[in-house]
Simulated scan of single mutants.
Amino acid sequence: MIIVYGGKGRQFCDCYSMAGADALARLVESIPLGSKDRVKAERDLITRSATVEIDDDGRIVLPGPVREKLGITPEMIKDGVEAALAGATDRFSLWRGDAYRDVFGDDDDDDDGEDALAVVGRYPKAV
């Protein structure tokens, strides 16, 4: 798994499968070489990423830069810091639990009553 921890304004890290990370790299490669956008994308999405192994019990060890990005200290780990995982179509985001709740509140806070399938139906179908 690849964990992307770049981006100064982000309070979370995005986690990709190897195939997902390869797809992300192809998107970065589509940006013109030497451009400001390419430099930023390479720095925040490629350089500031880490490969992690998943052990037989499904656990991972978060590398130091990822723990630092999330604001997780050794004391917090000792006390049992909570993580939040937010799924997406091609990745999931890893948050410190309290930071996730600060941004998104409770799960039902954003329910405006509109069916999510109706939202998806407003957009053209992918080929």
Rank of each mutant, 00 (worst) to 15 (best):
V52A: 08
E29S: 05
D14Q: 15
G71A: 04
D110H: 12
V52D: 05
G113H: 12
D55P: 15
A116P: 15
G64V: 01
R43P: 05
Y100V: 01
G64D: 01
E68S: 00
A19F: 05
E82N: 10
A19T: 06
D108T: 15
I54M: 12
M1A: 08
D98M: 14
C15F: 05
P65L: 01
D44H: 08
L27Y: 09
R48K: 13
P32S: 15
S49I: 00
T89W: 12
A50P: 00
G97I: 02
L117T: 06
I3V: 12
G7T: 15
A83K: 13
V61S: 08
V66S: 02
R26W: 02
M76V: 03
A23T: 03
L117G: 13
F104V: 05
L85V: 10
M18C: 13
S30F: 14
D57I: 05
I46N: 00
K40G: 11
L45R: 07
K40C: 08
A116C: 11
A99S: 07
K69F: 01
I2Y: 05
L24G: 01
R26S: 07
Y123F: 07
K125P: 12
A88G: 13
V81F: 06
D22F: 05
A21F: 02
C13T: 02
A41D: 04
G7N: 06
G58W: 13
F92W: 10
D109G: 15
A88E: 09
A84F: 04
P63E: 03
V119E: 08
R26L: 05
R48C: 04
L33N: 06
V61C: 09
R48F: 02
G87Y: 11
E68N: 02
V52F: 06
E42T: 11
K8D: 13
G9N: 13
M76F: 03
L62N: 02
R43K: 13
D108F: 07
D37N: 12
D37H: 14
L33V: 07
P124D: 08
S30N: 15
T51V: 08
D90I: 05
V127Q: 15
D106H: 14
T51P: 10
A23P: 01
P65A: 01
A116V: 07
I60F: 14
G80Y: 09
V119Y: 14
S49Q: 00
T47L: 07
S30P: 07
D90K: 13
T73P: 01
G9S: 09
I46L: 09
Y16E: 00
D37F: 05
D57K: 12
E114P: 06
L24S: 04
P32A: 11
D44R: 12
P124W: 08
G20A: 02
A116K: 12
A88D: 09
A25K: 01
D111N: 15
E68V: 00
A19S: 06
I3Q: 04
E75H: 08
V127P: 07
S17G: 09
S49F: 02
D110T: 05
D115H: 13
G80H: 15
L24H: 00
A99V: 03
L24A: 03
G20E: 01
G97V: 09
G9D: 10
L70E: 00
R101P: 04
V81Y: 02
F12V: 04
D106A: 14
Y5I: 03
D107M: 11
E53I: 12
K40V: 09
L85K: 10
R48N: 10
A19M: 06
D107T: 15
D55I: 14
G97H: 10
G20V: 03
